[in-house]
């Protein structure tokens, strides 16, 4: 077990380093954008004096590295700074919206992950059958279609024509859980259609990849039925690649929802990011990007850790 802890500690510290590098890239990227926050706040008609005064008040006249460390130090204490657009604490702004984004992602994940695994296992079991081909064609078409298009089709059919679900996922802080789920059905369905193909195909491929292994043949020669061979003998050894793809897709559910949130006017982090870019609210853009990056890094880290934990050689050392 000692080896595992060492390995986990290594991955964790690597994750911290990655986050640090990412924060640097975000900061540099944002400071490369044309114009500056003070100018943006005061508008075109501001005199140079007032702009300079505001720059000084915001600390923008400091050299880059000092601003970076001030920013980083603030974040480490939970202070993301203040929004330029409305002078509110960014952490207040982020908190509620991030929770909304997580809720939508979680809803989509709860549906799509079991669905993808089941479809993938069945596709491996009935390889090259009509079912296998149909699932492949359908999931591939849904992934090849742009998500805003999928979203509008869903709105057209289920909101406009059938009127089953609302076309706007309008939720507030006081919305009840079931109302929230109801409002999120169409956005979650869009996301599911987009991510299910990857996970399903990796599940199928990872299992089929193992079907040529001697221990699969051994199981067949022991008279084990095919479905048990797939579930009991192939799947436990296929987890590592499957987990990796699942996690990348989960990360996509959180990070890549920008378009879907905008289409459904869902008050999540993606919507906030788009709004802030339009308003040149650079501190908010920075904060959102950092939250997205941290999510990505954390999820990939957990994929690494889970893959390690599903390897019996590491879990049960000699």
């Amino acid at each position: 077990m000692k080896d595992i802890f060492i390995m986990l500690a290594q991955r964790l510290s690597l994750g911290v380093v990655t986050l640090f590098v990412v924060s640097l890239i975000i900061f540099l990227g944002v400071s490369l954008l044309p114009g500056d926050a003070a100018q943006a706040m005061l508008g075109q008609s501001a005199t140079p004096d007032t702009v300079a005064a505001l720059r000084a008040r915001m600390g923008l006249d400091q050299p880059g590295y000092i601003r970076y460390f001030t920013w980083l130090g603030g974040i480490l204490q939970g202070d993301f700074g203040v929004s330029i657009a409305n002078d509110r604490e960014i952490s207040d702004l982020l908190g509620w919206r991030f929770a909304n984004t997580l809720f939508l992602a979680l809803l989509a994940a709860v549906v799509s992950v079991p669905l993808a695994l089941t479809l993938g296992i069945l596709a491996a079991l009935y390889r090259n059958s009509v079912y296998d081909r149909a699932v492949n064609v359908i999931t591939l078409s849904s992934i090849s279609t742009p998500e805003f298009f999928v979203a509008y089709i869903l709105i057209l059919v289920f909101a406009v024509q059938l009127g089953w679900f609302p076309s706007l996922a309008n939720v507030g802080p006081d919305t009840l859980f079931f109302e929230r789920v109801y409002a999120c059905v169409l956005p979650a369905a869009t996301l599911t259609l987009v991510v299910v193909a990857h996970m399903m195909r990796m599940t199928r491929a990872a299992i089929i990849n193992l079907l040529a292994s001697p221990y699969i043949e051994m199981a067949a020669l022991k008279g084990i039925p095919r479905r048990h061979i797939i579930v009991r003998h192939a799947l436990p050894n296929a987890w590592a690649p499957i987990i990796n793809v699942i996690v990348i897709n989960l990360a996509y559910l959180i990070v890549g929802v920008v378009v879907v949130e905008v289409v459904f006017v869902y008050p999540g982090l993606g919507q906030l990011l788009v709004d802030s870019v339009q308003r040149r609210d650079l501190p908010v853009v920075q904060a959102c990007s950092l939250v997205f990056a941290a999510t990505y890094v954390l999820l990939n880290l957990s994929a690494d850790i889970l893959s390690i934990l599903t390897n019996p050689r590491l879990l049960h050392p000699k």
Binding site: M218, A219, H233, N237, P312
Partner: peptide
């Protein structure tokens, strides 16, 4: 090869 014919996960 027993090493290959036993499932490593069980």
């Amino acid at each position: 090869s027993a090493a290959a014919a036993f499932n490593p996960a069980h």
